[in-house]
Amino acid sequence: MRRNQRQLYRGLLFLLALVLSYCLSHAGPPSTVAQAQSRVFVNQATAQFDGPEGPVTVTSNETRVGEDIVPLSIVKTADRAAAEPGDVVVYRLLVTNPSSRAATPLTITDQLPRGLIYVPDSVQTTPLQPTQQVTTDSSLTLTFPSLEPGASVSIAYGVLITPDAVRGDGRNVAQASAPGFAPVSAPFQLTIRPGIVSDCGTILGRVFVDKNFDGQQQPGEPGVPNAVVFMDDGNRILTDPDGLFSLANVLPGYRVGTLDLYSLPGYTLAPNLYRIEDNSASRFVRLSPGGLGRMNFAVTPTFGEEQS
């Protein structure tokens, strides 16, 4: 027993010696690994070739590995959050160089979503002026010679919303890049409302007691409250105390509504003595995009309610 204890002590001492020796060896001057982290490796390529006028040497830009570069910052805003076709949205970009190096050259790209186009000649930049500007319908590229450390450039431009925009997502991304800097981007989400090109229609109607059987409501023909009208898509509509109802945001196309006779006990559909078509139990409306449809139901006191 005692012998075992002695062996255990010996083992512990050995372990202690190991740990001490390790600590001493690492408490010395900084290691070479730590030095490598703060060192900047500058890399530049040079190419030589024999031109017609003798040897030419071209030098690439410098790439720097290991340098702790503060990235560029880019902020994108617009003058509105939602727009409809026909609107002009003014976007503003602010690109800042917070690093200690100049961004040379600085390239700014803006990509527009479907249906948005640039307003020609609307780009304004301060304080720098671009050396190159390439505009297509859906993208804008500006190149500035250099952005000094701590400096900013502000860019404003107008964008026109076309009816196509309703089908796009309204998300637009601007990107700033410069050699030696990681590219940065800023999105902006614009809500596109259909506005004037909305294709939803409205259905109006009334349920009333028809006294002269012409399908139209005249004085002396009161509306029936709490009558239920069912639409082909399952919408259930209740008439107001005057027998009127309206249904907004109806998809255009052929729409059918019918009166739930169970909701107005004692009444049934009135015959229409003037128009055969209006004797139907349902109303069929061709709702044009953004249009207005009408579903009038004339009712009259009934008898002999169906007994199945």
């Binding site: 059987f213 049934t268 559909l269 009135a270 015959p271 229409n272 003595l273 055969i276 004797n279 009259t300 006191p301 009934t302 008898f303």
Partner: peptide, 8 residues
């Protein structure tokens, strides 16, 4: 019948 009738 095909259409409703006025109340008898």
């Amino acid at each position: 019948r095909a259409t409703q009738t006025t109340p008898p």
